[in-house]
């Protein structure tokens, strides 16, 4: 008899979407579950935004395919039929992306994601964990390294600067230092961006060889000095600063000659430092 009751309860619980629990159990589970529910709503809010982007992207794919890719016309002397058209597959993918976007949007609306999105439009949440700044720090380092320095500055110098900045941002493990170093590096990057956008670097390099490399090297030295000033008076941080400096130079010294001289890979920009490496390498041959 008891087993039957239990089985019936279990079945009812399985079939019901929301089970109303007795107050003590609710109290016990409240803290953990509430957090999960909150996280889920937050996730659905993001899903709602993503779904709109997906639908828009799917529409763009279909419109692009229909307007830019020949479905039936002649192209390059070949008369097309719809089933061999290069637009056939993109059309299908675009269509599926729209369907998935609609499904995701539907789910986000059902789970309260759209509501949360509308609520949050009027108020802005402030990040107290410092994770946003950490994320911005990482993105700044990566974007500056790849788009700003690698195409224009000596590869060895770019790598050394990237390592120095990246390690010192996070190895000191101090949010206030991260803020200061981030601002310092951002200002430096913006100055160089201005220089490159005005194409002043080419003029300078024409007048004096490796001028931009020299300027970036000065920036690298300034960053070292600034970070040293920040850690002044703290024994543990001083030790970390030394490690940071070593770790910005040693991997660059191993990695770059290995690719340049052993794997024979021509580096993106071979400026002052790689020229110096060449002189040293070929003087020992």
């Amino acid at each position: 008899m008891m087993d039957d009751v239990l089985r019936a309860c279990r079945m009812q619980a399985r079939s019901m979407k929301r089970v109303i629990l007795p107050t003590p159990i609710l109290k016990l589970r409240e803290s953990g579950n509430l957090r999960k529910v909150m996280d889920k709503v937050q996730l659905r809010k993001k899903d709602f935004i993503t779904s709109i982007i997906l639908i828009a992207f799917g529409i763009f794919m279909i419109l692009y395919t229909l307007t830019e890719i020949p479905m039936k016309d002649s192209w390059g002397g070949v008369m097309n039929v719809w089933f061999v058209s290069p637009g056939l597959f993109p059309l299908g993918v675009g269509f599926l992306i729209i369907i998935m976007g609609i499904v995701l949007c539907n789910r986000a609306i059902k789970d309260g994601g759209a509501k949360k999105f509308m609520e949050d439009l009027s108020r802005r949440e402030k990040d107290t964990s410092g994770k946003t700044l950490r994320l911005l720090g990482i993105l700044l380092v990566i974007v500056a390294y790849v788009y700003l320095y690698i195409p224009r500055i000596d590869y060895f110098l770019s790598t050394m600067l990237c390592l120095m900045v990246f390690i010192s941002f996070f190895y000191f493990d101090r949010p206030d230092f991260l803020k200061k170093l981030f601002t310092f590096y951002l200002v430096g990057c913006l100055l160089f961006l201005g220089l490159f956008l005005m194409k002043a670097d080419k003029q300078l390099n024409k007048s004096f060889l490796y001028t931009t490399d020299g300027l970036v090297f000065l920036f690298f030295l300034a960053f070292i000095v600034y970070s040293r000033v920040l850690v002044h008076g703290d024994g543990v941080l001083k030790k970390r600063w030394k490690t940071t400096l070593i770790m910005s130079i040693v991997p660059s010294l191993i990695l770059i000659p290995s690719f340049k001289y052993f794997l024979l890979v021509p580096l993106p920009v071979e400026g002052a430092f790689i020229e110096l490496m060449n002189i040293i390498r070929y003087s020992f041959r």
């Binding site: 380092v141 990566i142 390294y145 790849v146 690698i150 790598t159 990237c162 390592l163 990246f166 390690i167 941002f169 996070f170 190895y171 493990d173 490690t243 770790m247 991997p251 660059s252 990695l255 770059i256 690719f259 794997l263 890979v265 021509p266 993106p268």
Partner: peptide, 20 residues
Amino acid sequence: PIFMPVVLTLCVIGSYALGT
């Protein structure tokens, strides 16, 4: 925080080296 930046430089040079 020490080895991840080194991994980044490996990712960068690795991606570049394939087609230079």
